[in-house]
Design a protein around this nucleic acid. Structure first.
Lengths: 227, 227
DNA sequence: CGCGAGCTTGATGCCGATCAATGCATGTGG
DNA sequence: CCACATGCATTGATCGGCATCAAGCTCGCG
């Protein structure tokens, strides 16, 4: 593999891991069209996936049909860990745009992990990070209002995009307002209203899915719930 | 070790694991008084803990002082995994009553895990379960109202207690209303009001912290959000 | 061009937060 | 043993934020 260059750049940039970079066996690229599932809740876990290109959302539904978006995933993110409990995926992963993923067959991955202590440790850290992210999300949903949730969402997304070499200020949303609303536990209308409010406050500039952060400090303040 | 009996009973009962039972090295019992921390957010991760006796809550705070209870933990539960990302605990673990835990030193645990593939796999499953639990919690906070959240809370607790050999109907809460409120993203008053409501509906019988489930079916219906 | 999906904006109502008072149990010191 | 303080829980009154219902709006696309 001749990709030590980009990998080092990746790993130095942000809290972001690459199993493939650590010698996990990959089995080629898979393409997923916009709106199509990479895997579905209930599918057998056959592989882990590292996002190569495009963005995904993961979501979960229960018997009653209640649906909740659990996360948005950018290039470099690992997908499929949700199935590790009993080798069955607990959520859907759906492409928000045309996407490509590295496929890491689960069986061979396990064999390799059994040999490489570093690979194990890396996996643990990735799972631990997922746990932490979930807990931060719980804190957010439990303590912040609509405005704060949106501010936190924008900051998080901007930061993750920046870690991948994009601008920290301007971004193009790949997900719909509906998905954002579900992710934040709100309705579409509330999302829309608070976005325009943040625009009126000159904190954001919004043009459809084109977002610019005008006042990061104010956004931070709003996201931490200090009024 | 002569405890294969109880261990088999444990493992057969419910979705519940025991690292100690799988040969993870333990280093004795530790006692924690009511209200005292087993570890604190920011502490270095030195060990994992398996609850032996009593109950714990885990909680997380951020800079702004916002606090959120993330979980309640019964005998048999594993504590400390939150620190695996960077060997620093991300949350507090506080005893709700006088408690005892098995201490599993992290260093020796890692050595053992490097040797035992089964131990690794078990750890992955436990972490995966934690991930799933967090996602279910997100779904709950994102889609259910106060009444549904309380119903789901009661059902979950009853089920976990039942898995440990207690009654499925009657239970004695170890946590305060304040903790419950924080856990569910509500205020104490709302918790109190909805508890009395559930009592008026003859779904629960409530005597301070003594709870009896009178109508499990109705409780289930309320917890799934079907009005 | 016309249709539909996604987004915005407005009017109304309800649920849960907030503020406030009281009850009740436990603990503590005079 | 009583007086008082303190923490926890319930109940009531009021207010506000978000959901809900409803109507346009924009944009992309067949």
């Amino acid at each position: 593999m001749l990709n030590t260059g980009p990998i080092d750049r990746y790993r130095g940039l942000a809290a972001r891991e690459s199993l493939a970079a650590l010698g996990a066996p990959t089995a080629g690229l898979r393409k997923v069209d916009r709106g199509e599932p990479l895997f579905r809740q209930g599918d057998a876990l056959t592989a882990l996936y590292e996002v190569q290109l495009g963005q995904f959302k993961t979501q979960r539904s229960d018997e009653g049909g209640r649906r909740q978006v659990l996360g948005f995933h950018l290039a470099g993110d690992l997908l499929g860990l949700d199935g590790i409990v009993d080798d069955v995926h607990q959520q859907d992963a759906i492409a928000l745009e045309s996407a490509q993923v590295w496929t890491i067959p689960y069986g061979t991955f396990n064999e390799e992990a059994a040999r490489s202590e570093e690979l194990q440790h890396e996996l643990h850290r990735i799972m631990g990070r997922e746990l932490t992210r979930g807990q931060e999300m719980l804190l957010l949903l439990g303590t912040l209002g609509a405005e704060g949730r949106l501010a936190a969402f924008m900051l998080d997304l901007a930061q993750r995009l920046q870690a991948r070499g994009w601008s920290a200020k301007a971004m193009l949303l790949r997900m719909s307002r509906i998905d954002i609303a579900s992710y934040l536990g709100l309705t579409v209308e509330t999302v829309s209203r608070n976005l325009t409010r943040l625009q009126q406050l000159a904190v954001l500039r919004i043009d459809h899915r084109d977002i610019e952060i005008l006042d990061p400090v104010a956004l931070e303040r709003i996201a931490t719930g200090s009024p």
